[in-house]
Protein backbone atom coordinates (compact mmCIF):
# COMPACT_ATOMS: atom_id res chain seq x y z
CA UNK A 1 0.00 0.00 0.00
CA UNK A 2 2.74 2.41 1.03
CA UNK A 3 4.90 1.38 -1.86
CA UNK A 4 2.01 2.12 -4.19
CA UNK A 5 1.59 5.53 -2.57
CA UNK A 6 5.23 6.43 -3.09
CA UNK A 7 5.13 5.10 -6.61
CA UNK A 8 1.98 7.11 -7.26
CA UNK A 9 3.68 10.22 -5.97
CA UNK A 10 6.66 9.66 -8.27
CA UNK A 11 4.32 9.17 -11.23
CA UNK A 12 2.43 12.32 -10.26
CA UNK A 13 5.62 14.38 -9.99
CA UNK A 14 6.82 12.99 -13.32
CA UNK A 15 3.53 13.85 -15.00
CA UNK A 16 3.56 17.35 -13.56
CA UNK A 17 7.14 17.81 -14.76
CA UNK A 18 6.13 16.60 -18.21
CA UNK A 19 3.09 18.82 -18.19
CA UNK A 20 5.27 21.76 -17.17
CA UNK A 21 7.66 21.01 -19.99
CA UNK A 22 4.83 20.83 -22.47
CA UNK A 23 3.23 24.07 -21.28
CA UNK A 24 6.53 25.88 -21.88
CA UNK A 25 6.49 24.74 -25.46
CA UNK A 26 2.91 25.73 -26.23
CA UNK A 27 3.12 29.02 -24.37
CA UNK A 28 6.02 30.38 -26.40
CA UNK A 29 4.09 33.44 -27.38
CA UNK A 30 5.77 36.74 -28.22
CA UNK A 31 6.65 38.93 -25.27
CA UNK A 32 3.86 41.30 -24.43
CA UNK A 33 1.23 39.17 -26.06
CA UNK A 34 -1.50 37.70 -23.89
CA UNK A 35 -2.02 34.00 -24.10
CA UNK A 36 -5.56 33.03 -24.93
CA UNK A 37 -7.49 31.84 -21.93
CA UNK A 38 -5.04 33.21 -19.41
CA UNK A 39 -7.25 36.08 -18.40
CA UNK A 40 -8.49 36.63 -14.89
CA UNK A 41 -11.70 34.81 -15.71
CA UNK A 42 -9.85 31.54 -15.93
CA UNK A 43 -7.84 32.10 -12.74
CA UNK A 44 -8.82 29.81 -9.86
CA UNK A 45 -10.83 27.39 -11.96
CA UNK A 46 -7.94 25.40 -13.31
CA UNK A 47 -9.24 22.37 -15.19
CA UNK A 48 -12.75 23.50 -14.50
CA UNK A 49 -12.43 23.15 -10.68
CA UNK A 50 -13.81 25.73 -8.31
CA UNK A 51 -11.74 27.21 -5.51
CA UNK A 52 -13.58 25.04 -3.04
CA UNK A 53 -12.84 21.96 -5.02
CA UNK A 54 -9.19 22.89 -5.26
CA UNK A 55 -9.07 23.46 -1.53
CA UNK A 56 -10.75 20.10 -0.96
CA UNK A 57 -8.18 18.51 -3.23
CA UNK A 58 -5.38 20.14 -1.30
CA UNK A 59 -6.79 18.94 2.00
CA UNK A 60 -7.33 15.46 0.62
CA UNK A 61 -3.72 15.41 -0.50
CA UNK A 62 -2.57 16.53 2.92
CA UNK A 63 -4.71 13.84 4.51
CA UNK A 64 -3.31 11.24 2.17
CA UNK A 65 0.19 12.29 3.10
CA UNK A 66 -0.72 12.13 6.79
CA UNK A 67 -2.14 8.60 6.38
CA UNK A 68 1.04 7.58 4.66
CA UNK A 69 3.25 9.14 7.32
CA UNK A 70 1.28 7.60 10.17
CA UNK A 71 1.54 4.18 8.56
CA UNK A 72 5.19 4.51 7.67
CA UNK A 73 6.80 4.06 11.06
CA UNK A 74 6.13 0.98 13.14
CA UNK A 75 7.13 0.63 16.75
CA UNK A 76 9.02 -2.40 18.07
CA UNK A 77 9.09 -4.35 21.33
CA UNK A 78 11.37 -6.62 23.33
CA UNK A 79 10.52 -10.33 23.64
CA UNK A 80 7.38 -10.98 25.75
CA UNK A 81 7.11 -7.24 26.42
CA UNK A 82 4.60 -4.54 25.70
CA UNK A 83 6.73 -1.74 27.13
CA UNK A 84 7.16 1.34 24.94
CA UNK A 85 10.78 2.37 24.37
CA UNK A 86 11.89 6.00 24.21
CA UNK A 87 12.10 5.63 20.47
CA UNK A 88 8.57 4.23 20.30
CA UNK A 89 7.27 7.13 22.38
CA UNK A 90 8.88 9.59 19.97
CA UNK A 91 7.30 7.80 17.01
CA UNK A 92 3.90 7.82 18.72
CA UNK A 93 4.23 11.50 19.61
CA UNK A 94 4.73 12.28 15.93
CA UNK A 95 1.66 10.21 15.08
CA UNK A 96 -0.35 12.05 17.73
CA UNK A 97 0.60 15.40 16.14
CA UNK A 98 -0.45 14.15 12.73
CA UNK A 99 -3.76 12.91 14.10
CA UNK A 100 -4.38 16.24 15.80
CA UNK A 101 -3.61 18.08 12.58
CA UNK A 102 -5.93 15.84 10.62
CA UNK A 103 -9.11 15.66 12.63
CA UNK A 104 -10.84 13.59 9.99
CA UNK A 105 -8.65 10.55 10.52
CA UNK A 106 -9.27 7.43 12.57
CA UNK A 107 -6.54 4.97 13.47
CA UNK A 108 -6.38 1.18 13.73
CA UNK A 109 -3.46 -0.09 15.80
CA UNK A 110 -2.36 -3.66 15.03
CA UNK A 111 -0.37 -5.61 17.62
CA UNK A 112 1.98 -8.29 16.29
CA UNK A 113 4.39 -10.82 17.82
CA UNK A 114 7.31 -12.94 16.73
CA UNK A 115 6.92 -16.68 16.25
CA UNK A 116 8.66 -17.74 19.45
CA UNK A 117 5.74 -17.51 21.83
CA UNK A 118 2.75 -19.80 21.53
CA UNK A 119 -0.15 -18.70 19.33
CA UNK A 120 -2.74 -17.99 21.97
CA UNK A 121 -0.46 -16.21 24.41
CA UNK A 122 0.83 -14.17 21.49
CA UNK A 123 -2.73 -13.14 20.71
CA UNK A 124 -2.92 -11.70 24.23
CA UNK A 125 0.52 -10.13 23.96
CA UNK A 126 -0.38 -8.54 20.61
CA UNK A 127 -3.42 -7.03 22.29
CA UNK A 128 -1.21 -5.65 25.04
CA UNK A 129 1.16 -4.12 22.50
CA UNK A 130 -1.63 -2.49 20.55
CA UNK A 131 -3.16 -1.23 23.78
CA UNK A 132 0.16 0.25 24.93
CA UNK A 133 0.18 2.48 21.85
CA UNK A 134 -3.53 3.20 22.25
CA UNK A 135 -3.07 4.32 25.87
CA UNK A 136 -0.12 6.51 24.95
CA UNK A 137 -2.04 8.24 22.16
CA UNK A 138 -4.98 8.86 24.48
CA UNK A 139 -2.57 10.41 26.98
CA UNK A 140 -1.31 12.60 24.16
CA UNK A 141 -4.83 13.95 23.78
CA UNK A 142 -6.21 11.83 20.97
CA UNK A 143 -9.91 11.14 21.28
CA UNK A 144 -10.26 7.42 22.10
CA UNK A 145 -13.28 7.19 19.78
CA UNK A 146 -10.87 7.70 16.89
CA UNK A 147 -8.69 4.80 17.97
CA UNK A 148 -9.23 1.06 17.72
CA UNK A 149 -6.97 -1.93 18.20
CA UNK A 150 -6.65 -5.48 16.91
CA UNK A 151 -4.22 -8.22 17.80
CA UNK A 152 -2.92 -10.52 15.09
CA UNK A 153 -0.59 -12.42 17.42
CA UNK A 154 2.08 -14.10 15.30
CA UNK A 155 -0.21 -14.58 12.29
CA UNK A 156 1.24 -11.86 10.03
CA UNK A 157 5.01 -11.65 10.38
CA UNK A 158 6.57 -8.65 8.66
CA UNK A 159 9.74 -10.59 7.97
CA UNK A 160 10.06 -14.33 7.37
CA UNK A 161 12.81 -16.10 9.26
CA UNK A 162 13.67 -17.80 12.51
CA UNK A 163 16.41 -15.55 13.82
CA UNK A 164 16.61 -12.47 16.00
CA UNK A 165 16.90 -10.19 12.95
CA UNK A 166 13.46 -11.36 11.78
CA UNK A 167 11.93 -11.68 15.26
CA UNK A 168 12.91 -8.13 16.23
CA UNK A 169 11.07 -6.80 13.16
CA UNK A 170 7.99 -8.90 13.90
CA UNK A 171 7.46 -7.77 17.52
CA UNK A 172 5.67 -4.60 16.49
CA UNK A 173 2.68 -2.33 16.26
CA UNK A 174 1.48 -1.27 12.84
CA UNK A 175 -0.70 1.78 12.27
CA UNK A 176 -3.48 2.00 9.68
CA UNK A 177 -5.01 5.47 9.48
CA UNK A 178 -8.03 6.17 7.32
CA UNK A 179 -10.60 8.89 6.74
CA UNK A 180 -13.61 8.64 9.05
Amino acid sequence: MRKFGVFGLIVLVFCLAMAGGCSKKVSSTPAGATAAGSGSGAYGSQGGLTAEQLEAQRLAELQRQAIEKIGADKIYFAFDSNELSQESRAVLTEKAELLKANAGLVLLIEGHCDERGTNEYNMALGERRARAAYDFLVLMGIDSSKLSIISYGEEYPAVQGSNEAAWSKNRRDEFKASAK
Binding site: E120, M123, A124, G126, E127, A130, I149, S151
Partner: peptide, 8 residues
Protein backbone atom coordinates in the same frame (compact mmCIF):
# COMPACT_ATOMS: atom_id res chain seq x y z
CA UNK B 1 -18.34 -10.05 21.07
CA UNK B 2 -17.57 -7.01 23.23
CA UNK B 3 -13.95 -5.86 23.29
CA UNK B 4 -11.30 -6.15 20.63
CA UNK B 5 -9.62 -9.45 21.28
CA UNK B 6 -11.11 -12.94 21.49
CA UNK B 7 -8.71 -15.62 22.65
CA UNK B 8 -8.79 -19.41 22.97
Amino acid sequence: LPGNTLIA
